[in-house]
Simulated assay, not measured.
Amino acid sequence: MKNFIVKTLANAGALGVATWILKDITLTGDSFWRETLSLILVALVFGVVNWLVKPVVQLLSFPLFILTLGLITLVVNALMLLLTSWLAGELSLDFHVHGFWTAVLGGLIISIVSWALHLVLPDDE
Rank of each mutant, 00 (worst) to 15 (best):
L82T: 06
V48T: 13
T102C: 02
G70C: 03
T84Y: 11
V56Q: 08
L91M: 14
W86L: 14
H98M: 12
L79G: 09
V104S: 06
S111C: 06
G47F: 10
G99K: 05
T102L: 00
V57N: 09
F65R: 08
G106D: 06
I72E: 03
L108D: 07
V42S: 10
H98E: 15
P63A: 06
T68K: 04
I66T: 11
A103C: 04
V45Y: 02
A43T: 03
Q58K: 15
I110V: 15
S61T: 15
A103P: 04
S85F: 04
L52I: 10
S61R: 08
W101R: 02
V75L: 14
V76W: 07
G99E: 02
A88D: 08
L83Q: 01
V104F: 07
I72V: 14
T73M: 01
V48C: 08
L69E: 03
G70L: 03
W86N: 08
G107W: 01
G47W: 10
G107C: 04
I112T: 11
S85P: 04
I72H: 02
V97N: 05
H98R: 15
V53Q: 01
L37N: 11
V53Y: 01
G106F: 05
L41M: 13
S38A: 15
A88F: 04
W51G: 08
I72P: 00
L74N: 00
S111A: 14
M80F: 10
F46V: 12
S111P: 02
L74E: 01
L93S: 12
Q58G: 10
A88L: 06
S85E: 05
W101V: 05
V53S: 00
T102M: 07
L69Y: 08
G107P: 04
W86V: 12
L44R: 09
T73V: 01
S92D: 15
K54N: 07
L105G: 07
G70A: 03
N77K: 01
L93Q: 11
H96I: 15
S38F: 14
A78Y: 00
L83F: 06
L41D: 07
V45R: 04
I109F: 01
N50S: 05
A88V: 02
G47P: 11
A103E: 05
L71W: 14
F100C: 09
S61C: 15
L71K: 13
I112A: 14
I112S: 07
E90T: 04
L39S: 10
L64A: 13
T84Q: 09
L44M: 14
H98T: 14
F65T: 13
S85I: 03
L83G: 09
T73R: 00
L71D: 12
S85H: 04
A78V: 00
L52V: 11
H98V: 12
T73G: 00
P55E: 10
T73L: 00
N77A: 03
V75Y: 05
L37G: 13
P55V: 08
S38R: 06
M80Y: 10
W86A: 13
W51H: 10
G106A: 05
V53F: 06
W86G: 06
T84S: 10
I112L: 15
L60R: 04
L59H: 12
L105E: 07
A103G: 02
A78S: 00
S92F: 14
L37K: 13
L108K: 11
V42D: 12
W86D: 11
